[in-house]
């Protein structure tokens, strides 16, 4: 029983962390261009990478 007092908060905390990470990524626009993100990873041009850091509205 006392073990549960540790384990449950840990389990919930991890879940909440995942939820927080999802909400953050949603807010920071990472789902705006899923197709683009899939192909951008293949570019090795540094110029493109540098520009890609800047996120448009």
């Amino acid at each position: 029983m006392s073990l549960l007092l540790f384990l449950i908060p840990i389990a919930l905390g991890l879940g909440a962390l995942g939820l927080g990470a999802f909400l953050w990524s949603l807010k920071s626009g990472q789902y705006d261009d899923l197709d683009g993100a899939a192909v951008r990873i293949l570019f090795d041009d540094e110029e493109s990478l540098k520009r890609s850091d800047r996120r448009p509205r």
Partner: peptide, 30 residues
């Protein structure tokens, strides 16, 4: 992906352009 590279590189070469970003999903260029 090639479209992204072509557009971003060519437009960025023009003078007076600060940032170009292609959105492949929406097919838009900002």
């Amino acid at each position: 992906g090639q479209c992204i590279v072509a557009i971003e590189d060519q437009l960025a070469k023009l003078s007076g352009i600060e940032n170009v970003r292609v959105n492949l999903t929406l097919k838009r260029v900002t």
